[in-house]
Structure formats: structure tokens, C-alpha cells
């Protein structure tokens, strides 16, 4: 049976890979968006600080949320545990200690990627080099994920990698929707303002879902449809609904899954029952906050069930 410690390492390795990937993707689309929009409409940079990690601490170190400061903090600041560089470092560390299980290429690629990202950090912080730098990270993460899928045995350890991936992607989607959609919808109650279209597209791009959306949703890119797609679509690998289904599938392969399955059932019902049209008018922020809490409970349930095994009571836990 898989050791709890190993399961946890694999789970976190996958979460950190997705976190580096998701943050990089968001920063690329956000940079593009800022270039497209006139200053009056621009979402600015401060809104990005609501990402995973501890962005609250930003103002301990910086006075102003300027482009330069925010990007430094989100890409390469050692003081921000959620920065791209820290995520890569943690992904690498976790791969290193699970070398007996993860394919050799995964460790080697993550090791190279982290070393490269550290060396070239200044290029990534400069406007001119930012796109190439972040794009390299997105591409390399895809390569790592490709190695995991293509070469790692699809048995129990793999399910923990998958769960890490899916919990992180769902969490990222909820946060990005909160940061962007919430601000976007504002007071306008569904009426399309100039530039809304561009901004909704940016949300989809940040979630790697623009092309999929175009193929599957035949309406103009606008609030309720985007929200519905990112929350409820069953096929898009970056939609919250897809990720939860996937975690559920993984859990069904694992022992002692009652509690995590219950938690996931709750989150799934929330999404299924969500009235996206109503939410675009009011209550979106509260809804996303609640969904975020449900995802946190799912993580805690996985942790309590599989990672932090307490030694008592003996009789009920001993399986052999």
C-alpha cells in the first residue's frame, strides 16, 4: 500500500506544477489585456494579488501595487510562497524526494526548469522578456505533465498526482473568476459595455479555455456564458466541474474514500445548482468565496484521510 508521505509528496508536486503554470498563464493574459485597454477601463495590477499563496503580505514589502512591484512579487519574490519561482522550487523539491516513483524525466525537467527560471529571472521581470519567459514556463510545465501521463504507471500514486492537479486547477479557476469576473460584472447588470468582450476573452485565455469555449458555446463571449462554462462544463479540463468529476473518479480508485467523497459531493451540488444568470447580477463574489471554502474542505479531507494518519484508535485503522 502506498505510503501516506509519498502520496502527499506526489499530490503537492502536481499542485505546484499547476500553480506555476496557472500563474504564468494569468500573467501573460493580464499583461496583454493591460496593453489593449485604455487606462480608465484597465483592471490595473493590484487585483492579481488575490491569487493563491499569501498575497496579503504584499503590502508588507511594497508601498504601491505598480506593474513592476506586482510582477516581481508574483513571479520571483522569495517572500511570496505562491510566486512562480517558489512553486517551481517546491515542485522540484517534491519530485526530488519521490524519484523512486516519478519518471526520471520529470525530475530532470523540473530540475532544469527551476535552475533556468532562477537564472533568467531578470529577463522575465523586464517587459521585453516577460512573455518569452512565462511562455517557456507554461511550455515546460506541459512537458512535465506530458511525461507524467505518458510514462508513469497509471496506478495509485498516479491518482494522487491527478488529484493534486485537479484540486489546484479548480482552485485557480475559482480565484481567477473571482478576481476578474467579479470586477468585470460590476454594477452594469449584464449590459455589455465597450471592451467587455476583450476582458471576458482574457478570462478564458487565463484559464486556457478560449478555444474550447469557442467550439462548444456558440454565443458571444459574455459574462453568464463564460461563468457557466468555467463552472459547469464537463469536458473542459480547466472547468471546475470537470476537475471535481476527475477527483471523484480518482477517489473511487482509492480505499477509505467515504469522507472525501462526501465533501466532493457537496461542492458538486453547489456548482450544479448554481444559477449563473442570477449570479451575474448579484452574489457572485459570495458564491465563489463559498466554493473556494468547499475546495479547501476537500483538500483538508484528503489530508486527514490519506496524509496525516493519526495512530489512534488502533483497532479501527489497522487493516492487516
Amino acid at each position: 500500500m502506498l505510503l501516506s508521505r509519498t502520496a502527499e509528496i506526489l499530490y503537492w508536486m502536481a499542485r505546484y506544477i499547476e500553480r506555476a503554470d496557472g500563474t504564468s498563464r494569468l500573467l501573460i493574459t493580464h499583461s496583454d489585456l493591460v496593453l489593449d485597454l485604455p487606462a480608465a477601463v484597465s483592471p490595473g495590477w493590484e487585483s492579481l494579488l488575490a491569487l493563491p499563496g499569501e498575497p496579503e503580505s504584499f503590502f508588507q514589502y511594497f508601498e504601491e501595487a505598480t506593474e513592476r512591484n506586482v510582477l516581481r512579487f508574483l513571479i520571483g519574490d522569495a517572500r511570496n510562497p505562491g510566486s512562480v519561482l517558489n512553486s517551481l522550487r517546491m515542485a522540484r523539491e517534491n519530485a526530488r524526494i519521490s524519484r523512486a516513483i516519478v519518471p526520471r524525466e520529470v525530475w530532470e525537467k523540473l530540475n532544469d526548469l527551476w535552475a533556468w527560471a532562477r537564472t533568467c529571472l531578470n529577463d522575465g521581470l523586464a517587459r521585453k522578456g516577460r512573455y518569452a519567459y512565462l511562455n517557456e514556463i507554461v511550455g515546460s510545465c506541459a512537458e512535465v505533465v506530458g511525461y507524467i501521463h505518458g510514462t508513469m504507471s497509471h496506478d495509485t500514486p498516479f491518482e494522487f498526482v491527478q488529484m493534486g492537479r485537479n484540486v489546484e486547477v479548480a482552485d485557480m479557476a475559482v480565484r481567477i473568476l473571482d478576481v476578474r469576473a467579479h470586477g468585470l460584472l460590476g454594477e452594469s447588470s449584464g449590459e455589455l459595455r465597450p471592451y467587455d468582450d476583450i476582458q471576458w476573452k482574457a478570462v478564458l485565455r487565463a484559464l486556457a479555455s478560449f478555444q474550447n469555449y469557442r467550439r462548444h458555446v456558440h454565443v458571444r463571449v459574455k459574462g453568464a456564458a463564460v461563468l457557466g462554462y468555467m463552472l459547469q462544463d464537463e469536458h473542459s479540463p480547466h472547468s471546475v466541474g470537470y476537475c471535481l468529476d476527475a477527483v471523484e473518479r480518482s477517489l473511487r480508485m482509492l480505499p477509505r474514500n467515504e469522507d472525501p467523497l462526501r465533501t466532493i459531493g457537496h461542492a458538486k451540488r453547489m456548482i450544479r445548482d448554481a444559477d449563473v444568470y442570477g449570479l451575474t447580477r448579484s452574489g457572485l463574489h459570495d458564491f465563489l468565496e463559498e466554493l473556494s471554502t468547499a475546495l479547501a474542505s476537500l483538500h483538508e479531507s484528503l489530508q486527514a484521510t490519506y496524509f496525516l494518519l493519526e495512530p489512534t484508535p488502533w483497532h479501527s485503522l489497522a487493516t492487516t
Binding site: 500500500m1 505510503l3 495509485t156 494522487f160 482509492l254 477509505r256 495512530p311 488502533w314 489497522a318 487493516t319
Partner: peptide
């Protein structure tokens, strides 16, 4: 990864529970 119970048996913590 290992834990000893009050009956002096050694277990390892696995995702399936404690395994002697």
C-alpha cells in the same frame, strides 16, 4: 512513516490505513 502502538506493534502509515 512508522508508528508504535500501545501493544508494542509497529505500523506504517499508508493511504489504506495503518499496516503492521
Amino acid at each position: 512513516d512508522l508508528v508504535v502502538d500501545d501493544e508494542d506493534r509497529v505500523f506504517m502509515r499508508t493511504i489504506g490505513g495503518l499496516e503492521q
